[in-house]
Structure formats: structure tokens, C-alpha cells
């Protein structure tokens, strides 16, 4: 049973990788539609897998069905590979794309990727800033800092606690380049199924092109990190230093947190509801005050934050920051 489950997990991982590759390819491949269809099949298989995984927890008579599923997954993977082989021209896909750059929209998109507008990208990056820092002095927050992201191996940045799936993708060889970042930004969970990054994705290719152009300025190649921080790290709400420096009572925080844990799971699962475990203290405090002042929109969170005092918010922040 355990062995079977492990095998099934690794097949899933492989499926996610191939799916990711398939995503990268669609940007410059003439048979993108075929791959989309196959990707959809894979997504459906993944959904079936998730259902099965839930059933495995309840029952141990499912080996037969797991084998069946593994077989169908393997067949689907083979089909994707075959389609890619068939679709790829003899020279590399990129060369082929360059040769035909006049008449396909996919290639226009690639060009847009190459020549996105970094100034506009900085604006688009605003929605990433509550979790990711970039530029001089950038540190890991909810998400890792993004200096030098180009060429960085996924899930391998020292000192950051990645989701298991992201770590596995890195171990399997995923490296952040133009194409992989583009696929990840378009639909994070399509590339890394259970990534902790709780972001729906940027559907507009121009948004992605611009943000990638912005991010590239902070990678060693093609440009060095600028001497001065490009933008001040504006907070969502202005808080007095006293409020930011309150030291929370973790015992009280633990009691108050029991209310949060009805919805936010301690183990970091984030299906439908984001994880708040190990959130950096200051980010937690800023976010809760943003809900309390109704700057952030969610009605449940506005209500929950509304009755918390500054001390109670500090207590919760202190407790969740240290939670394993």
C-alpha cells in the first residue's frame, strides 16, 4: 500500500512536470491546441487522482484501482510525449518560431515576452509585493525574494520553506527561465500542483511579458541588481511604530488562533483558503489591520479582524510566526 502510494505520487509528479513542459511549449508550438486537449485530459486525470487519494485514506482495498490509474496516467503521459515529438520540427522549437515569426500569434507572444515593458511590469508586480520582495535589501517574506530569479533552480533557494511540490519540481530539474516563469505566472497550480503560492495567475500575456521584463532587471544576467532600491516598500496600511513593535503574547495567541484554525489549516494546506502558518510577524500585522480598516475586501476576515485589539493581532502574529 505504502509503496503503491509512493509510486502513484511520483507518477503524479511526473505528470505535473510534463504538464508544465507542455505549458511552456504551447507558447511557441503550432500544435498548441492538441497539447491543450491532452493537458486537459491530464488535468482530469489529476482530479480523479485527488478523489482516489481521498478514498485511499478511508480504505485499503484500492490497489487495483491505483494500478489502473497509474496505467492510464502512463498512457496519457506517453501520448503527450508522442504529440510533442510529432509536433517538434527537426530544429529546436525556438529556432522554428523565429523562422516563422511573421504569422503566428504564439510567436508574437514570445516576442512580447522578450520585449515586455519593465516600467509597466513594476506596476503589475504591485499585486505580488505583499508576499515577494525584490531589489536591494530584499528578504524572504511569505514568498522568497526574487533577486536573481532567472536561472535559479525551483524550490532550492536556501532558507526558504517551500511546499513539497515545489521542492520536488526543483529536484526534478525545474529551473526558472523565461518560459517556465511564463507558464508558472499564467497558472501556478498547473505547473506546481500544490504550490503554496496562493495566486490565481495572470491570464493576459502582456501582463506576464511586462512583469518578466521587470523581474529580469534584478537578475545577474542580463543586468546587475541596481545600487539603489527601485521603489520604497509601501505598506497597505500606515501603522505607527508602537503598533508594529508590539510583542505578542503567544499563549493568548494560541487561544485566539484556535478560532482561525477552523478554516486555516495548520499544516499549510491552502485549498480555497490561504495558509497563514509561519507568516512573518510584520506581514501578518499589516494584513490584519488592512482587514480591520476594510482596505482588504474579504467579509469574513473584515469581521474577524474588526473585534481584535492591537495586542490581540500582535499575539496572533507572534503565535503563527513560530508555528511548526
Amino acid at each position: 500500500m505504502t509503496k503503491n502510494t509512493g509510486m502513484y505520487a511520483s507518477v503524479l509528479g511526473g505528470a505535473a512536470l510534463v504538464l508544465g513542459v507542455a505549458y511552456g511549449w504551447t507558447a511557441r508550438d503550432y500544435r498548441g491546441e492538441e497539447l491543450e486537449t491532452l493537458s486537459e485530459t491530464l488535468r482530469q486525470l489529476e482530479a480523479r487522482n485527488a478523489t482516489l487519494a481521498a478514498q485511499i485514506a478511508e480504505s485499503d482495498g484500492l490497489e487495483g484501482r491505483i494500478e489502473e490509474l497509474e496505467a492510464s496516467l502512463a498512457a496519457a503521459l506517453q501520448a503527450v510525449e508522442d504529440a510533442q515529438l510529432a509536433a517538434a520540427p527537426p530544429e529546436t522549437a525556438a529556432e522554428a518560431a523565429a523562422a516563422e515569426s511573421q504569422d503566428t500569434t504564439e510567436v508574437v507572444q514570445t516576442v512580447a515576452l522578450e520585449f515586455g515593458d519593465p516600467a509597466r511590469g513594476e506596476e503589475v508586480f504591485g499585486q505580488c509585493r505583499s508576499c515577494h520582495q525584490i531589489g536591494q535589501g530584499a528578504e524572504d517574506r511569505i514568498g522568497p525574494h526574487l533577486n536573481g530569479i532567472f536561472g535559479r533552480r525551483a524550490g532550492m533557494h536556501d532558507g526558504f520553506r517551500y511546499s513539497d511540490d515545489m521542492a520536488m519540481m526543483g529536484a526534478d530539474g525545474l529551473t526558472w527561465e523565461l518560459e517556465t516563469l511564463n507558464a508558472y505566472l499564467e497558472n501556478p497550480k498547473a505547473l506546481v500542483s500544490r504550490t503554496r503560492m496562493n495566486f490565481a495567475g495572470l491570464k493576459d500575456p502582456q501582463d506576464r511579458a511586462d512583469i518578466l521584463a521587470y523581474l529580469r532587471q534584478f537578475s545577474a544576467s542580463p543586468q546587475n541588481i541596481p545600487e539603489a532600491a527601485p521603489t520604497a516598500q509601501a505598506r497597505e496600511v500606515e501603522l505607527s511604530p508602537e503598533v508594529l513593535q508590539l510583542v505578542g503574547d503567544t499563549d493568548y495567541g494560541e487561544y485566539l488562533a484556535s478560532e482561525c484554525k477552523t478554516c486555516h489549516q495548520q499544516d499549510g494546506s491552502d485549498q480555497g483558503i490561504p495558509s497563514i502558518t509561519q507568516w512573518p510577524t510584520e506581514d501578518f500585522v499589516v494584513a490584519m489591520h488592512a482587514y480591520k480598516r476594510k482596505i482588504r475586501p474579504h467579509p469574513v476576515m473584515q469581521m474577524m479582524a474588526n473585534r481584535l485589539s492591537d495586542e490581540e493581532i500582535a499575539a496572533l502574529a507572534a503565535y503563527f510566526a513560530q508555528l511548526e
Partner: peptide, 30 residues
């Protein structure tokens, strides 16, 4: 204090609300 969903909300918000309920189910049963 309290709140209730509004009539006429858009489909994306209603979908997010449903997905949130699935997350809540996982959370409360854990």
C-alpha cells in the same frame, strides 16, 4: 458583528465562496 452574501454577486465571487467552503470543510474536519 455579522455579514451575509449579497444578491447579484458576480460568478467569480460565488465560485470563490464555494471554493472557500471546501477549504473550510478540510479545515474544520482536521
Amino acid at each position: 458583528d455579522g455579514f451575509v452574501s449579497q444578491t447579484g454577486e458576480d460568478a467569480a465571487l460565488r465560485k470563490a465562496t464555494y471554493e472557500e467552503s471546501i477549504g473550510w470543510y478540510q479545515g474544520i474536519t482536521s
